[in-house]
Simulated scan of single mutants.
Amino acid sequence: MFGDPHILFLKAQMREKELAHERDDEETRPLSDGSAYEQQLDVRMRSKVDKKQRPLTRYLPIRSESLNLRAHIESAGHQVELCPHVLLDSTSCRGFLHKMGSKFHHWNKRWFVFDRSKRMLVYYADRTEKKARGGAYFQAIEEVYVDHLNSVKSPNPQLTFVMKTNERTFHLMAPSPEAMRIWVDVVFTGAEGYQEFEHGS
């Protein structure tokens, strides 16, 4: 049915020798010159990316008073209900962030309130919101972005983001990655000092 075992053995040996000759031929064959092929292609090398260039931000500021902030943030893919560090409603966002002090560069825990009705971001010593310690009006906020370059020494660089205003730069640290992403997207909706936005409107 399968044939003579001796003949099958001889055929297998012959096939093995043929394959060995083919491999030898390939190994001794000279390499082809690829320059003709390269000349046919119009290959362009990427220019070097500036390491200090920050990543592009996702949104432009939104001036509309009818914006539902929570719905906007949820439509961006954030699961607000799963992030206990952020209290978000239709017009405001509240929560604790650590802020690097401008004088001594210590990280201080502050209660932040982003309020679209007052058009400002304010921070307090605690959540009672009795006396504002500082903040910025929307028209002063120029940029907000994740600090991928680790521009400051942070206890947790993966949770640190930057908010630039026309007067100073705030280095902020969120309690969780999702809280940081939410805060960045929230603050950018009010970044009316953003240069391209101002010139484009």
Rank of each mutant, 00 (worst) to 15 (best):
S92C: 11
L8C: 07
M173R: 05
L69P: 01
N156T: 11
Q158S: 14
F104G: 05
G95I: 06
I7C: 03
H105F: 11
A125Q: 13
M100V: 01
Q13H: 05
A125T: 06
A140E: 13
S32Y: 11
E178Q: 10
M163I: 06
M1P: 07
V146F: 05
S92Q: 12
D4G: 00
E196G: 08
E167W: 09
W183Y: 09
K153R: 14
K99H: 03
I182K: 00
D25R: 15
L60A: 06
Q13Y: 05
S176P: 04
E38H: 12
Q39A: 15
L19W: 03
D185N: 12
V49F: 08
D115V: 06
R44L: 11
S47P: 02
L172F: 03
Q158D: 15
A20I: 12
R181E: 13
H171Y: 14
R54L: 14
Q39E: 15
E74A: 04
N108W: 12
G200D: 15
Q158V: 07
L31W: 02
R46W: 10
F112V: 05
A132L: 07
R58D: 06
T128M: 09
K153Y: 07
K118S: 11
V187L: 15
L67M: 13
E198S: 14
M120K: 15
P84S: 08
E16V: 03
F96K: 00
H106M: 09
R58L: 12
K17D: 10
E81I: 06
K11F: 12
K11V: 14
L97E: 00
R70K: 15
S151T: 14
L121E: 02
R46I: 07
Q79D: 13
S64I: 04
S32T: 13
I141H: 00
L60C: 03
F188K: 07
R44V: 10
K130I: 06
V146P: 01
M120D: 10
Q39F: 12
F138Y: 10
T57P: 00
K52P: 01
R63C: 09
C93T: 05
H148N: 09
V186S: 02
G3C: 05
K17Q: 12
T28P: 01
G200I: 15
V86H: 01
S176F: 04
G134W: 09
G135W: 08
P84Q: 04
V184G: 01
E178M: 08
R133P: 02
R54N: 10
T91Q: 11
L88E: 00
L19N: 08
D42W: 06
D42Y: 07
E142N: 03
D147Y: 04
K99N: 04
V162N: 00
P177W: 00
G200T: 15
R58I: 10
L8S: 10
E18H: 09
M100T: 00
Q139H: 15
E192S: 05
D42I: 13
F138L: 03
R133N: 12
F161I: 01
E196D: 15
H6C: 07
H171C: 07
Q139R: 12
D4W: 01
E192G: 14
I7H: 03
K164P: 01
S32I: 14
Q39Y: 09
T57K: 06
N150K: 10
T165L: 06
Y124G: 06
Y59C: 13
R29D: 15
S90N: 13
E22Q: 14
V86Q: 00
F114M: 12
T128Y: 06
K48W: 11
